[in-house]
Design a protein around this nucleic acid. Structure first.
Lengths: 204, 204, 204, 204
DNA sequence: TATGAATGAGATTTCATTCAT
DNA sequence: TATGAATGAAATCTCATTCAT
């Protein structure tokens, strides 16, 4: 078989996988993982139920595949190579970039996080593929600034999770529509306030 | 029927409900809500499956009842009436008290939070009964100190969720055993570092 | 719990198992094991599909249970203790007793034998529980008569299977209605002819 | 279209059918008819799933086609025309020839026989195409020798099935590896003992 | 009120067969 | 004619819930 024929096939397979994943993401978002039926996923994805199983070995694999899909949306290399010197600029760039990811894949995150509580393997995958990569960047940055004497002697691990947790809960509140005071808070304002809060907490 | 007879009966009913809830909590913690079977809950609770339905109308009600059970573990009135003047003392007392709650009911929180992502009513209940009461105390305290000129002009809503989110994610990391660096961090250290971080972020 | 209550419960369980097995036997006989659906088994047995699984862990267990049921229909102890001295009398008694079993459980044997070809565990069970016990009796009898000098020096293992195989294929022909010449052959005639055939083959 | 072109085409078709049947035979032997998937048959046969359906109308047809394939392996004409006069020679020649068939097609027989119990049409086909032709030869031979006064007044139908059943069960025992005493019995010994057994049973 | 056997709706998954390329 | 992706019917099995005792 010729190379471009193989390529073509691979592309078709990838396109089909994505098509199915998107359907699954919608249904998972609506119903949650357990109440989502393969029948409805198939309908939303525009394929038959059987076709799902030509591309994923079972329903749960759909969740794991979503983790991988999100994980590939990494930070641009430029960011890693030349992180801005100004801490505020650094954190704002980073946080806004990740916030955009949540905005884009928001409907995927919720069912994913829900299952993380009861699925050990999924939890590990989410942590290793999604949380760790970004957390490491922040930790190392903080560590460097502590050594430079610009930050207080804080624990970078804790502070990093504090930043992520602060963003996560506030974002969740915004998306969950459970507290209407969030309607008047813009994402940019929220992001900036949180970055400043944490930053002032670590600055000497 | 005499009053004390009614009381006795009510107590029996309450005791049975608790007995069942405790069984359910254990199984939910082990398996998650969906993979927990009523058969196993009954066994763990030491009752028959049928009996569960004499006290709860369905499996999901067990989750809602757990929210109420946790919600009753409110802060002591004394805390509300005479909150410590020193912000650090205030926040530490508060956070440690809540942390104790998580320690005690930790196995209930995970399955509860998992379902919060896909169950609107449960989400509302958790927010109103568990998050809001404590959040309000913090918000009002922050508001007061802003007005007193001791805190910067921050948004109390955001800062409060930042504090809660910081504690939540760090605690989750500790409990999830997914990052072994948390093994060397004591709860007290963690709590104090987070409180200081947020506090330094809001102090003028 | 009192003994007779336990007994009663055990009897109920046994009765239910038998009820389900009988339903399964009918459907297996009609359709064969694989084309038999649990839905139809349930209907024939007069229970719901779910009930089947309260008594058998899966569809295949129904087959194994049938083997056990047939296996319990052993030869009377008197037969073992005082086998008739006359070889012809001995073999006729034995063969007719077993033939009666086939007559009674005939509809169970067919699907059982069909699966024996592709299910190792079932094959082992059928051999150990059904074939071996009866085969051993015959083998030992033949062996004894060889030693007494009344039978030729034949291999008791082969001769025993020859007898069983002769009976089996002729019986199958009768039951399968595939050769109408069998319509005019009575079971008793057939049995006697086969016993005589084998016996004359071994007698000195 | 020219004759030899048609012939060539027919040969190609026949070759393809055989290729597919051989693949199917292997998988049927491994898994049994029902657990064999068309996907695996296609793989073993070295064709695609679709191609199977260009040569056979459905999976079951594969079984029927196997019956025909075995049926064509008939006894040599010479055997029919000049059967040996000596009964023992006659039976040994016949039985050994058929035993060779089982040896060669053994892996096909098991799944075939399994289905025979629940598939009326297949049963009829096996009986008419495989059992009957050989059985008739034996029956007529026996009949002739009875008339010649060399055999007792036995029923040729029963005796013939007794011979076939004796061979079948003993052979099955050997192949099924379920009774290790068969490991020390050679096929030739077994064949001869059975022929002698039956023959002594019918000889005057 | 407590029990637990019975229920049956419903979900996942398999796989023979079809059909566009 | 060959391919193999797509199909969707159908089957097994689970389990929350009911109800007779």
């Amino acid at each position: 078989m010729l190379d471009n024929s193989t390529d073509f096939k691979e592309q078709m397979v990838e396109a089909r996988r994505t098509q199915i994943l998107m359907g699954a993401a919608q249904v998972f978002a609506d119903k949650g993982f357990h109440k989502a039926t393969t029948k409805e996923i198939a309908r939303k994805a525009g394929v038959s139920e059987g076709t799902i199983y030509n591309y994923f070995s079972n329903k749960r694999e759909l969740l794991l595949a979503m983790v991988q899909m999100i994980a590939t949306q990494t930070l641009r290399g430029s960011f890693f190579n030349n992180p801005p010197d100004d801490p505020k600029e650094f954190l704002l760039l980073l946080v806004r970039d990740r916030y955009r990811l949540v905005d884009q894949y928001g409907h995927i995150f919720a069912p994913l996080l829900a299952e993380v509580f009861s699925d050990d393997e999924l939890r590990e995958a989410v942590y290793q593929s999604i949380v760790m990569p970004i957390a490491q960047v922040v930790e190392q940055y903080i560590q460097k600034y502590i050594e430079l004497g610009k930050f207080r002697q804080v624990n970078p691990v804790i502070v990093t999770r504090a930043l992520i947790g602060s963003m996560a809960l506030n974002t969740a509140m915004k998306l969950a529509l459970v507290d209407n005071r969030y309607e008047t808070i813009s994402s940019d304002d929220m992001t900036e306030q949180i970055v400043e809060l944490i930053l002032d907490g670590v600055l000497k």
